[in-house]
Simulated scan of single mutants.
Amino acid sequence: MINRFSVLFPIFFAAILAFISYWVQVSVENESEKRGNKLSNSPDYFLTNFKTTQTESNGSIHFILSANEMTHYPQDDTTRLKKPLFIRYKNNVPSSKIEGGIGFVSTDGEEVQIIDNVKVARLETETKPKMELFTDQLTILPNKDQAFTKRPVRITQDPKTVVNAIGMNYDKKNGIMTLLARVRVHYEKPVKKNNLNVQPITQNKNLKK
């Protein structure tokens, strides 16, 4: 019995040492992996007063994307923007503006997502009144001139038109905006300002007669 115990004890002790060594190795690897993930989540560079411009083939400005701060994250190769501002141009003149609290740019730069107090403004022209859209999330495809959201939107247009809906798709090239669900429209017919001047003028003419 003693001889059998003398043989088994070294084997048992070696097994315990092997298990302890394995446990230590796994623990170290897990800790290293956690630290590596934590480090990879850290940004590798950032810029302040960021601004990028894309031009058309003829040299005119297509759009300008700017932000107070731009931070790049190497883990997923994404870019985060603080206070982003997207300005679309037509004939080198700003035609619309999109701004918000935070922005994210995809790896290939083909998609820009803006969240937190998003405001879209179509600037007033000689033929079109000013229009504004408000939501809390908007995805922009700059090179396709498209934008969309599944979130609630509120649209106002001068002088007194208000539209509320859930979800919106906008295709600028084709000039089509599609509201997806629960569309409600409030419209007030504008009052002609010159109506009040008609009667006094008529009275003056009658007096001359």
Score class of each variant (00 low, 15 high):
E126F: 10
D171A: 01
R151G: 04
P159S: 11
D171K: 03
T107V: 03
D116Q: 15
M131Q: 12
T149D: 10
K128W: 06
V163F: 04
K119H: 08
A147R: 06
D145L: 12
D158M: 09
K173W: 02
Q137I: 00
A121W: 00
V153F: 10
V112N: 13
E126H: 14
K128T: 09
P152K: 11
I155Y: 04
P159F: 06
E132F: 10
L123I: 02
L138S: 06
F134W: 14
I114H: 10
M131S: 13
R122I: 00
T149S: 12
L141Y: 08
I155M: 09
V112K: 15
R151Q: 15
P152Q: 11
P152Y: 14
I115Y: 13
T156D: 01
D108V: 09
R151F: 07
I114P: 08
T127I: 14
N143R: 08
P129H: 09
T125D: 15
L133R: 13
T156V: 03
K160W: 03
Q137W: 07
V153Y: 04
P142G: 07
Q113I: 00
D108R: 13
N169V: 00
D158C: 05
P152H: 14
K160P: 01
K173C: 08
A121E: 04
V120F: 05
P152A: 10
S106T: 06
R122F: 15
V153T: 04
V112Y: 14
E110Y: 05
N169E: 08
T139F: 02
T161K: 12
A165R: 09
V112W: 11
P129K: 14
I140P: 07
N164K: 09
A121R: 07
A147K: 08
P142K: 02
R122P: 01
K173F: 02
T161M: 06
I140W: 02
V120T: 07
K173H: 05
V112I: 13
N117M: 05
V162I: 11
M168V: 01
T107E: 15
D116T: 07
D171W: 08
Q157A: 03
K150H: 15
Y170M: 00
T107W: 11
M131D: 07
I140S: 09
